[in-house]
Design a protein around this nucleic acid. Sequence first.
DNA 1: GTCTATAACATGATAGAC
DNA 2: GTCTATCATGTTATAGAC
Lengths: 188, 188
Amino acid sequence: MSVPDPSRTGRRRVTEARILGSARELFAARGFDRTTIRAVASAAGVDPALVMQYFGSKRELFTRAAQELPAPPTATDADALVDQLLATLTRELGGLPEGTLALLRSMLTDPAAADRVRDTLGRQTQAVAAALPAGPDPELRAALVVTALLGVTVGHQLLGLTPLTDAPAGRTAALLRPALRALARPRA
Amino acid sequence: MSVPDPSRTGRRRVTEARILGSARELFAARGFDRTTIRAVASAAGVDPALVMQYFGSKRELFTRAAQELPAPPTATDADALVDQLLATLTRELGGLPEGTLALLRSMLTDPAAADRVRDTLGRQTQAVAAALPAGPDPELRAALVVTALLGVTVGHQLLGLTPLTDAPAGRTAALLRPALRALARPRA
DNA sequence: GTCTATAACATGATAGAC
DNA sequence: GTCTATCATGTTATAGAC
């Protein structure tokens, strides 16, 4: 009794992971508000009360289901930075983790999600600004780089704009390269 | 009795406009799901039943409160196009109509809002593509222009990223100009 | 440990009094 | 025409049976 049963713990972990997976899917598809505990439980094939038992609250479930955006770039010169950003974008356009989609999906309507996204974008902006060659308004230029890429990602992954979804990710990245370079190294 | 009283019709129109204004504010701030008929009525200083009386349903109220994004550009050459897009952006960063904010705020979580935004962005993309100088993938390049600007607008107006909100709109537009030019006229 | 039953509440919408 | 009262529904969360 006092010794925990490994197989039971294992089962619990498996069930918890399955619930988390269903939660990620639904949060990614419908956002925080329109996703119900009932729907998550049903998708995971468990009782709604079990979801509460494991995660305590819908908010807690969302917090654990949501995943941050990719880590900020680490490059130190402009060209490497642009390459790194485009490599990240290419990966993102190939498919973002559902936990990340969940966070992005809710960022405009859920303040908690907005805070997390703001945080991550702020960090990304700082990292980009640090790698930018000398020039005016490094932080603003970095923020423009980050938000422009965010717009492309949102248009592709969340709005499903056909010109973007139809194009191969590599082509998109190639077309963006000179634009990002222009932001990274303004001639003034 | 059979003759409508002008002053009453006028009062009704005034009240309706006040309700619509409150609805725009709340939809813009919280999105469709988190805005309640009760909250709209309270903000407008009327009874919730009156809102239903005038607009029939919450969905109908939202439909009438939401306003499309600015009209697509009409320029026919690349430089004029970029100037026009940046002028529009500058105006947007100065402050978007609340009905438009309402639409954008809900575009990731409300399918009806998503449809309207997709529609408008699609039209914008077509218009930009038509004005683009000859080159490969005009539609894709146009979509990248449109989504990049959308990202900047969202980052500024809805997420409130400080590097963007702190910068004068003209500075932002100036930094974006070479980037948009690079998208408009790829060297390949 | 798991699930049934239900509490406690908020919402959109409606019916009917005044 | 306006508002009170209420309905029907759906939500998170909890208590307790098995």
